[in-house]
């Protein structure tokens, strides 16, 4: 699955200026506690969270996530978006809950 596929499946809005839509997404991870995400999420995963502040970019780049999906229409801070653009991380937002997002991605074949 590509980042583009993830966006379509969730009908999510990409808030970063990304050119990485064709990058591969290999797994999913749901988590709002940053240490748990850092400890457990795999590389190239789609990370589903309600956190929208700049530290998600640090966590995302340290563990090489494929993209970050901010659910429940939580706002993504401006400084987080500009940092994500700098680091080449794709962030998308959706009104869906984290559970609904994970369920939809799973149903469409993401492990």
């Amino acid at each position: 699955m590509t980042i583009n596929d993830v966006q379509k499946i969730l009908n999510a809005t990409v808030v970063t200026q990304s050119t990485y839509e064709n990058n591969s997404v290999q797994s999913g991870f749901v988590g709002d506690l940053l240490s748990v995400v850092m400890g457990k999420a795999k590389e190239q995963c789609a990370w589903i969270t309600i956190q929208g502040h700049i530290n998600i970019i640090a966590v995302g780049t340290l563990i090489n996530v494929a993209c970050i999906i901010v659910t429940e229409d939580f706002k993504v801070d401006e400084d987080a978006i500009s940092k994500a653009n700098e680091e080449g991380i794709v962030i998308m937002t959706t009104h869906l809950s984290s559970y609904e997002s994970a369920a939809l991605l799973s149903k469409n074949g993401l492990e």
Binding site: L33, S35, N55
Partner: peptide
């Protein structure tokens, strides 16, 4: 509230 303070920091460092 920012997702820190899960009590996993030192555990992750040790790991």
């Amino acid at each position: 509230e920012m997702g820190f303070g899960a009590g996993m920091g030192l555990a992750n460092m040790k790991r």
